[in-house]
Each structure stands twice: as C-alpha cells, then as structure tokens.
C-alpha cells in the first residue's frame, strides 16, 4: 500500500503524468465493464430458463451502468462516448481478454464461471479504489459495490449447482481451462494510451510499467496489480478446488501471477484475440451504417 497522497481537487490541475495515469486506469475499468456486458447480452433470450434469462440481463445492465460511470469520469479529460467507444480504434481498448472471449453455443458454464472470476476481481479492485485520491472515482465505488455482491452470489450458486453434477462439472472444468489464463490478464499492466507518447499507433505498444507505478503512487488506486492478483488467487483457487475443479496454475510458489500462465494476447497491452475485432465490428455496425457522428444520449450523465 502506498502512503496516502494528496487528493486531487478535479480535472483542472492535472499534470501530464497524472492525466495519463488517470486515463489509463479509467479505460481499463470502463472497457472491462462495457465488453463484459456486451458479451452477457448474448444470453438474453438464450438462457436455460426464463428466470436465469432475467438474472443475466440484470447483470449485463449493471455492468453497462458501471461502464457509463467510468466512461463518464473520462469525460473529465475531455473524452466523449464517441472517442471512447463508437469511434475508438479497436486496438486502443484496454479490457482484459477474459471479457472479450466468445461464448460457445449453449455453454452456460461459461457466463457463470466468467462472472465468478470477474466479480471476485472486481470486488477487490473496488476495495482498492474506495479511497482513491481522485474523488470522483471514490464516489462511484459505493454504488457499484452494492450490486457486485449480488452478482458473485448468483455466480456461486450456479457454480455449486453445476459442480454437483458430474457431466456439468466436466463442462465447468473445460471452460475453466480455457478461461483461466485470460482471467489472469485482469491483473496485467496497460500499454500507454495512444496519444500519450506516440502518434503512430504502432501495435502492440510496449507496456510502460511507469504508468502503473504512477497509478499507485498518485493514490488513484491503493493496491498494486501484483497485490490484487495474489489476493484474487488466494480466493478463487481454494474455492474452485473445493468444487473439485483443477485450477490450471502452479500453486507451489504461493499465489502469484506468472508470465508462463498468461495467454499470448493480454488485452491490456492492446493485443486482442480475434473474437474482439468481430465483436467490435458488430456493436459499431449501426453507428457506421447510418453514418452517425455522435452516439445518442437519452439519460442524464451520472451524478
């Protein structure tokens, strides 16, 4: 934990270094939520029961709501929804590859497991943002937290139910093997945003560990990614093992995210799996086809 630095009063007195740190942090937060929600909505009208259909739709809308909150913080830096979503270069998105992975038809084990892996990480990161030196971030944590515990409970209920049945547990295991490396990218540092130091947009841009260090040094987040990753592992590994699932990570050295366990594409550094390009193309289709130049807002900006 870093010593508490001075609070920022707002967007006006930010230095370049502070700006970059804030932008990088908020983009990874917002992009995670937005892309996860985008994937969740695929289960609408496709879930196993009407009840689970309603529940997953709720989660999707919660995550979309959170994405709105984080994108709105980026409004302080002059970004609008157009630059942040609908006209952003897909290579500039900074979400973890966990949230962009496509669902295999009918594999209900996936949204349930993905939700669990993600929601535990989200709880931890919200905890580390509750005392953020950027007041707007801290303000928004409480609202989001109240919804997240419900998501996690929902996911665990399903996991336990599925793990209880041999065939369903095998599906869970196969899905866990697929998702787990991607989940680890939740704790990877980001490449700098495009405008920060190079205009060319060469990809993938090298991760700059300095930005992540700044995020913590400036008190924007009060825990390091390593700390969050270790804590996350210390929760999910024993839990998944208690369901008789084998977690694909070497636990001998304690709970640590190692390079060997990570997938080739990590999202945070601007590299994405092929599924992302397709997804991006789909959700921007109408906007492009109609030749829009501004996404429609129908709700007031978050308080």
């Amino acid at each position: 934990m870093a010593a508490a630095p001075d609070e920022f009063s707002g967007p006006d007195d930010l230095e370049e270094r502070e700006r970059t740190a804030l932008e990088t942090l908020c983009k990874r937060l917002a992009d995670d939520e937005f892309v996860l929600a985008e994937r969740y909505t695929e289960w609408q009208v496709r879930a196993p029961t009407l009840e689970s259909d309603l529940a997953l739709a709720n989660n999707a809308q919660d995550e979309l709501g959170h994405a709105r909150l984080w994108y709105d913080v980026l409004g302080d830096l002059g970004f609008g929804e157009r630059e942040l979503v609908y006209e952003r270069d897909p290579d500039d998105f900074r979400h973890s590859t966990l949230v962009e992975r496509p669902f295999e038809d009918g594999n209900w084990a996936d949204p349930v497991l993905r939700s669990y892996l993600y929601d535990v990480a989200e709880e931890l990161r919200l905890e580390a943002l509750a005392d953020s030196s950027y007041p707007k971030i801290a303000d928004r944590v409480e609202k989001i937290r109240s919804e997240e515990s419900y998501h996690r409970e929902h996911a665990q209920n399903w996991l336990e139910r599925l793990a209880d049945d041999e065939e369903s547990r095998e599906r869970l295991q196969a899905t866990l093997d697929e998702l787990f490396p991607h989940a680890l990218t939740l704790f990877e540092p980001c490449a700098p945003p495009r405008d920060a130091n190079e205009a060319s947009g060469d990809k993938p841009r090298a991760v700059d560990p300095g930005i992540e260090a700044d995020i913590v040094d400036l008190g924007l987040r009060t825990a390091t990614l390593e700390e969050l990753g270790e804590e996350w592992l210390s929760i999910v590994v024993p839990y998944l093992e208690s369901l008789d699932l084998a977690v694909p990570i070497d636990g001998d050295d304690g709970f640590e995210v190692t390079a060997a366990a990570l997938p080739d594409e990590r999202g945070r550094d601007g590299t994405h799996t092929d599924a992302w390009a397709e997804l991006y193309d789909e959700f921007t289709r109408t906007y492009r086809e109609l030749g829009r130049d501004e996404p429609t807002t129908i709700m007031d900006a978050p308080e």
């Binding site: 909505t41 309603l54 999707a60 959700f283 429609t296 129908i298």
Partner: peptide, 28 residues
C-alpha cells in the same frame, strides 16, 4: 435481441437490453 448489440449508443443499448428483459418477464 440482436439490436441490443447493434444499438448506436450505450444508452440505447441499455434501453434495448431492458426492453428485451421486460418482454421475457412478461412471458413469464
């Protein structure tokens, strides 16, 4: 359902997701 994804903004997407959810709720 496909227009949740194809909605041209986050607000429209939210509204469409909620609408589709409402219809399933009405079915129930």
């Amino acid at each position: 359902r496909p227009f949740i994804r194809q909605a041209p903004s986050i607000d429209r997407k939210l509204a469409f997701s909620a609408k589709v959810q409402d219809e399933i709720g009405h079915g129930q």
